[in-house]
Simulated scan of single mutants.
Amino acid sequence: MTDRLLLDKDVDRALERARKELRLTRDGAIRAILRDWLEGHAYLPVRDLDEDSPTKGEA
């Protein structure tokens, strides 16, 4: 059994485009988009990145 989030077709297509552009897996894209939304709506604190922070693989 695979646990896969079922999305409306238009949302799934948009996610696929974003995933390819960001070079992430589907799960990685969902995590990045969800984190961005939660930070943007103040449900999570915004992470501070300084100049020396590693960002490779982060979206």
Results as ranks from 00 to 15, higher is better:
L6E: 12
D50P: 03
A42R: 13
D3T: 00
E21N: 12
V11R: 05
R26V: 06
T55S: 07
R26K: 07
T55R: 08
L6D: 09
A18R: 13
R35W: 03
A32L: 04
L15I: 03
L5W: 06
L49Y: 09
R31Y: 04
E58N: 14
T25Y: 04
V11Q: 01
T25D: 04
R47M: 00
K20C: 12
T55A: 07
K56H: 15
T55L: 03
E16H: 10
R23L: 15
L5R: 03
D12K: 02
L22V: 05
P54A: 12
H41S: 14
D36T: 10
K9T: 14
L24C: 04
D52S: 08
D8N: 12
K9D: 11
K56C: 15
L44E: 05
K20D: 12
L7W: 03
D52G: 08
D52K: 08
R23A: 15
T55N: 06
E16G: 13
S53P: 02
L15Y: 01
D10L: 10
R26G: 01
W37V: 09
R4I: 15
R4Y: 14
E21R: 11
S53E: 07
L6K: 12
R35A: 07
A42Y: 10
E21Q: 11
R13G: 07
L38S: 08
A42G: 09
H41G: 09
S53L: 01
D36A: 00
D8T: 14
R4F: 13
R35C: 05
R13C: 12
E21H: 12
L22S: 06
R35P: 00
R35D: 06
D52H: 08
T25Q: 03
D8L: 09
L44Q: 02
L22T: 02
L15W: 02
L5C: 07
L22N: 06
V11D: 03
G57R: 06
M1N: 09
E21G: 12
P45M: 01
D50N: 08
D50C: 07
E51S: 13
L44T: 05
L5G: 02
R17E: 11
L7Q: 06
L44D: 03
Y43E: 15
D12E: 09
I33R: 02
L15H: 03
W37D: 04
E39G: 00
R23V: 15
D48I: 15
P45E: 00
R47S: 00
R13E: 10
P54N: 12
R31H: 00
G28Q: 01
T55Y: 00
V11H: 04
D36G: 00
I33A: 11
L5V: 11
D36S: 05
D50T: 07
M1A: 08
L49T: 09
L49R: 09
T2R: 13
P45Y: 01
D48N: 14
D27H: 08
L6G: 14
R26M: 06
T2M: 13
D10N: 10
K56P: 10
R13S: 08
L5S: 02
Y43V: 14
A29E: 01
S53G: 01
G40L: 04
D3M: 07
D8H: 12
I33D: 01
D27A: 07
A42F: 10
